Simulated assay, not measured.
Amino acid sequence: MGCPRHSSLGAGANPRASERIINEVAQGFRAPDGAVDWFTSLERAEQKEALREVVHYSMQARASAHDARDGLLRSGVKPTMTPAVLIVRKPVLEQMGKIINLPHSAVADTRRRERECQGTCRHAWHALP
Rank of each mutant, 00 (worst) to 15 (best):
M1F: 08
M1Y: 07
M1E: 12
G2V: 13
P4T: 14
P4A: 09
R5G: 12
H6T: 14
H6R: 15
S7D: 07
S8E: 06
A13D: 06
P15F: 06
P15V: 08
P15L: 08
P15Q: 10
R16Q: 03
A17Q: 10
S18T: 15
S18P: 09
R20C: 03
I21G: 00
I21R: 03
I21Y: 02
I22G: 00
I22E: 01
E24Y: 04
E24I: 02
V25P: 00
V25E: 00
V25N: 00
A26K: 03
Q27C: 10
Q27I: 03
F29R: 15
F29H: 14
P32F: 15
D33S: 12
D33E: 09
D33A: 12
G34S: 10
G34L: 05
G34C: 04
V36T: 13
D37Y: 01
S41H: 10
L42P: 08
E43L: 11
E43D: 12
R44G: 06
A45M: 11
E46H: 10
E46T: 06
Q47M: 07
Q47G: 08
Q47Y: 04
Q47A: 03
Q47I: 14
K48I: 08
K48A: 09
K48L: 10
E49T: 08
L51S: 12
L51I: 04
R52E: 15
E53N: 02
V54Q: 06
V55K: 05
V55W: 03
H56E: 09
H56Y: 15
Y57C: 11
Y57I: 12
Q60H: 09
Q60A: 11
A61C: 07
A63E: 08
S64G: 07
S64T: 15
R69D: 05
D70H: 10
D70K: 13
G71A: 12
G71K: 02
L73M: 08
S75W: 07
S75P: 02
S75I: 12
G76N: 05
G76H: 09
G76V: 10
G76Q: 12
V77C: 05
K78F: 06
K78E: 11
K78P: 00
P79F: 03
T80N: 06
T80R: 02
M81G: 00
T82W: 02
P83N: 03
A84C: 03
I87M: 04
V88M: 04
V88H: 01
K90H: 10
K90S: 11
P91C: 05
L93S: 02
L93D: 01
Q95K: 07
Q95G: 01
K98R: 13
K98H: 10
I100N: 01
N101S: 11
N101L: 02
L102W: 07
L102T: 07
H104Q: 10
R112Y: 15
R112M: 14
E114S: 09
C117D: 14
C117A: 13
C121G: 11
C121A: 09
C121K: 03
H123Y: 14
A124D: 13
A124I: 11
W125F: 13
H126C: 15
H126G: 07
H126Y: 08
A127L: 09
L128Q: 12
L128W: 10
L128V: 14
P129F: 04
